[in-house]
Nucleic acid binder design. Structure first.
Lengths: 196, 196
DNA sequence: CAGATATTAAGACTAGGTCTTAAAAGGTGA
DNA sequence: TCACCTTTTAAGACCTAGTCTTAATATCTG
């Protein structure tokens, strides 16, 4: 009776084929699965899979959003609280992209990114550069973990800030770092002051 | 004679509009720039800008590739040379996503990512975790810069490696870091050996 | 005003779908 | 074996966001 109908099997293959390559047209799918194009359309409808163009568009938007979240703009993670010049708190959830497949452990640079960008956000200046970072990873972090980072300015001498960032997962400290950050007060071209 | 023709001005606006939102159709562009659809098409042709669907597709592929490069799999940057257990070299170009818009300076965690992932790659073990990192940013790095990272194992005690990573831009050292990395030899669940 | 350049229009075609309606094929129970 | 029902395929009309070609109009400039 319900011996996995040909239909179900085909729909599974369809799903798999699109997971593998979302840029397949219905025609290509029809060929690959040895069914007619209308059948493919029915299957897509049944599975709630949109047409190629919609899929492409979603992928574009999606990937872009993730890129922005990871790469550009503001802070890595969500800024929860900020007292400019004093302290700040941010939160970040470990997504599948952040972990090494073999071990399931989050790659260190994402945690560093959260800490570093929070440290920079706390500085009360239009721009700032990280100079030195001392970092300690205490406990490995895994997918789905929710990291809470707390940054505190512990010293400020002229444009030089010393900032401590501690990251906790479920109230257990998993990471801590000390950043020495230099703020750049004016728009002047004085970026070479600490080079050579 | 060449007083910036209306045409040129319109084409600039077109480029800007698409930079801002690449999902605009010709019709929407025509409305926005107060020209006819055919004009928009001619302008696109002149500027070598493909149609909406092509743009969307390229974005999807592009962003996905970048995501992979930044987020998942292997190394951040390109692995150029690797002597397992001894040294390694990787290269990474600073893309627009990596820089802060205000200052044009690369965000520190990308450079950290390159260094850290290279350091991990050098370890001759199935898996490894970063324990401690001491990091110094010497010179700010900008968009388009080509960073060459060189990692070297300087000490190894049992499962604990000390690795130096130096990054140069155009033969000038811009970053250096020391990593203490613990390798995990077996598949056993001994991840808590260095916690608390 | 002539001539060149820029712009718009008109028509035919395309891909990769949509949605609706209809026909054919196939297996199953009585 | 027939009738029924599900599954599959087909056929036709429509859509978007283009393509490419050819032709007609504006508009500016010397």
């Amino acid at each position: 009776m319900s011996m996995i109908s040909r239909k179900q099997q085909r729909q599974q293959s369809l799903q798999a084929a699109l997971d593998d390559n979302p840029f397949l047209t219905d025609e290509q799918l029809a060929q690959q699965l040895e069914a007619s194009v209308p059948t493919i359309r029915l299957d897509r409808l049944a599975l709630g899979i949109p047409e190629l163009r919609e899929r492409t568009k979603h992928m574009a938007l999606d990937a872009q959003k993730k890129l922005q979240a990871i790469a550009s703009e503001d802070i890595v993670g969500q800024l929860i609280d900020l007292e400019l010049g004093h302290s700040g708190i941010s939160m970040m959830q470990i997504t599948p992209e952040m972990v090494l497949k073999r071990t399931g452990v989050a790659r260190g640079h994402f945690i560093f990114a959260q800490a570093n960008s929070l440290a920079l956000a706390v500085i009360d200046a239009p721009a700032a550069l990280t100079g030195i970072a001392n970092v300690k990873y205490k406990v490995p972090v895994h997918q789905g973990d929710n990291l809470v980072a707390r940054a505190e300015v512990v010293r400020k001498v002229e444009t030089k800030y010393t900032i401590w960032v501690k990251i906790r997962n479920n109230n257990k400290e998993v990471f801590r770092a000390k950043f020495l950050i230099v703020s750049i007060p004016k728009e002047g071209d004085n970026e070479n002051e600490n080079s050579r």
